[in-house]
Write a protein that binds this DNA or RNA. Structure first.
Length: 289
DNA sequence: CCAATCTTTAAAAGTGAACG
DNA sequence: CGTTCACTTTTAAAGATTGG
């Protein structure tokens, strides 16, 4: 198909590509990534000119690389990565009979390649890109979040529920049903006619899941509520943790307790999973006469 | 046994691309 | 053309709870 690009497009693409290249590490960027970035910048589909585009990318890549090398040699730091295409092991037919093992083989190959064979058959492979902007992105995200929470104040309470699932996969995942669970599906059929009618009682809900429980004193101090359902409590805890950024940055599954939380968890840090366990001891059933 | 609640990580599977 | 790679997307798991 269109084997060639109109000069105009070629020029504009080149500019974009150069831009992308200048913003990335030549040693880590991949042609694919560049094409992707390019596609993101234009409105229509580039797949028709994929090959041409790739060619163009290679062209620009080589040029920029040469330039960079020249510049680097200037003073610099050991041109270690000179030949970007170093690593590669050429499968050497490692009996990859099973496709399943292919992945495992890949790792194996890495080891194997250490032999001496250094054909460097992959000139342009360039591997992946560490995404330098990812860092800033992350930081920005964090900063935004911090600002946001600050601005919103802790008044969020139960209201702010929009939350940002950040697309995640929860939605889709949910659809998939967890395991087979077989046929005992219970029959939650009638729920429709049962409480559908406004259900003035908030506690109704199907199961006793949302039943209100009395909270222990430390928990009350922490959340400022005397009664909450378990899920709500968990939610509130997380909100609190996030507001104050109590998650351990190195391991976000760990939460560093502040004073109030220490009153509840009795320790400096707590695993997010253990959290529920400990929380269970802070719930007391409401005994209504 | 499953319902809502939260999150993070790790790993698998899947997809597209490129080299020989 | 086929195989392997690198990257991307998806999923599961870990933890507790109550009531039907």
């Amino acid at each position: 198909m269109a084997s060639e690009l109109p000069p105009a497009q070629r020029a504009s693409y080149s500019a974009i590509i150069d831009d992308i290249l200048s913003a990335s590490d030549l040693d880590t960027i991949s042609a694919k990534a560049i094409r992707k970035g390019l596609q993101a910048k234009v409105d229509y589909d580039l797949s028709q000119q994929k090959d041409s585009i790739t060619e163009l990318i290679m062209e620009r890549f080589n040029k920029v690389q040469r330039e960079r090398e020249a510049g680097a040699s200037d003073g610099a730091v050991e041109p270690a990565p000179t030949t970007n295409g170093t690593a590669h092991a050429k499968h050497s037919h490692t009996g990859t009979t099973n496709g399943e093992v292919s992945r495992a083989v890949k790792r194996k190959v890495e080891d194997v390649d250490e032999d001496d064979d250094q054909p460097a058959p992959r000139p342009m492979k360039v591997k992946k890109e560490p995404k330098p902007e990812a860092e800033s992105d992350e930081q920005i995200a964090r900063r935004l979040q911090a600002e946001y929470s600050k601005g919103a104040g802790r008044s969020t309470r139960g209201g702010g529920a929009p939350s940002q699932p950040s697309k995640k996969v929860l939605g889709a995942k949910k659809e998939k049903k967890p395991k087979k669970k077989s046929a005992t599906k219970i029959h939650s059929d009638d729920d429709s006619d049962v409480n559908t009618s406004s259900a003035t009682e908030k506690t109704a809900s199907k199961g006793g899941f949302n039943k209100l429980l009395n909270l222990s004193e430390p928990l009350q101090a922490l959340l400022g509520e005397t009664q909450l359902s378990r899920p709500q409590t968990v939610k509130r805890i997380w909100a609190y943790v996030k507001e104050r950024e109590l998650q351990d940055p190195s391991d976000k599954r760990e939460i560093r307790c502040d004073e109030l939380m220490r009153g509840v968890f009795k320790s400096e840090r707590v695993n997010m999973f253990k959290m529920n366990k400990v929380l269970a001891q802070h719930f007391f059933p409401i005994e209504e006469a």
